[in-house]
Design a protein around this nucleic acid. Structure first.
Length: 321
DNA sequence: GCGTCCAGGTCTACC
DNA sequence: GGTAGACCTGGACGC
């Protein structure tokens, strides 16, 4: 763990395309973190940390300074050195991209007129936006940790990786732990990673992925600039990254069905439980594409954050999937 | 306690 | 091109 004291700060505001619900977007109902599992959300304010593709660490204090229909985000960015004008522009641009401030999702909301499931989702989570990570390595760690493991074990691996190899940034009276930089994992021995972080067979692909990023694998912002198919194919060139993991990592909204989510979408799309969810994944993906088209990624995110309400509305037991 | 099973995929060898 | 089997580890479960 490497600690950094971030004593310099700069403040600015960002506008978003409405509707934009800041709290639902940065602190989603299912408890998924925005940037790191160790971030803090209290009384509408988020303290978190970010590493840009150049490797620099920042502390972030974000809160809403507007409403869902007239959204404004107040951003206080903490850094080790004073930010120049161009750096400030770059951080501001990264934040806007990460928070999806400019995305127009009226097409998704228009689906509610003819799709009863989307109608419920939009009513329950109006203004929630899917977000993106500026740090590709943290997404890849998540994807690899989720493979072939119950969620508690995935969390154990990720927590150990952060505590053993990550960064700690101190700012605004908070101490936020953040994912390791790829160079640190690339320099570690596979056996050391396996033992210290209980990674099992995942240690080898994770080190290989870290080496690829260190050696110039494109950033998520760059992958966002090419087609969804090309970005996915590029991600699948990495060792240990298959279709599911690429769907989790890609900045293009993916439909990352795994065994757990396949059970949920089987009940929602087919109204029945499936005995072999893994075998159903291709069929469910096809059905989702036919029904929701380019907005299927948004349906995916909204569904997984609305399981309690959906279970009640449609009389299904989705939380036990 | 102790043994067994298996999980929120991926890769490879084999047909 | 499709498919069975191996892969780390630790929590859950049965005894």
């Amino acid at each position: 763990m490497v600690s950094k004291d971030l004593t310099r700060s700069t403040v600015f505001r960002l506008n978003a395309v409405p509707p934009y619900n800041f709290a639902l977007t940065v602190h989603k109902p299912a408890g998924w973190s925005l940037l790191t599992p160790f971030e803090i959300f209290a009384k509408g304010t988020l303290w978190t940390a970010m590493r840009t593709s150049s490797g620099e660490m920042f502390g972030l204090k974000l809160r809403s300074a507007g409403t869902v229909e007239r959204p404004k985000i107040s951003c206080k960015v903490f850094s080790q050195e004073e930010l120049g004008a161009s750096e400030k522009r770059e951080v501001s641009k990264t934040l806007a991209w990460m928070l999806n401030l400019k995305e127009d999702i009226t097409g998704f909301y228009a689906l509610a007129k003819r799709d009863p499931l989307v109608r419920v989702l939009v009513k329950d989570l109006y203004g929630m936006r899917s977000t993106r990570q500026p740090d590709i390595f943290s997404r890849l760690i998540l994807a690899v940790s989720l493979q072939m493991a119950p969620i508690a074990r995935s969390n154990q691996m990720m927590t150990l990786l952060i505590k053993e190899y990550g960064d700690s940034v101190m700012f605004d009276g908070k101490d936020i732990l953040y994912w390791p930089p790829p160079e640190r994992i690339a320099d570690a021995e596979v056996e050391e990673l396996r033992k210290r972080c209980k990674l099992g067979y995942r240690a080898k692909p994770l080190k290989s992925i870290a080496e690829s990023i260190r050696d110039g694998f494109p950033s998520l912002q760059k992958l966002d600039g090419i087609s969804a198919e090309e970005a996915k194919a590029k991600l699948m060139e990495l060792e240990g990254i298959g279709e599911y993991s690429a769907d989790i990592v890609t900045p293009h909204a993916g439909f990352a069905l795994d065994v757990w989510s396949a059970k949920i979408f089987s009940m929602l799309l087919l109204r029945r439980e499936t005995e072999s969810p893994r075998d159903m994944i291709p069929k469910l993906k096809k059905l989702a594409e036919q029904r929701w088209g380019r907005w299927r990624g948004y349906v995916f995110v909204y569904v997984l954050h609305d399981l309690d309400n959906l279970s009640r509305r449609f009389n299904l037991n989705l939380t036990q999937a």
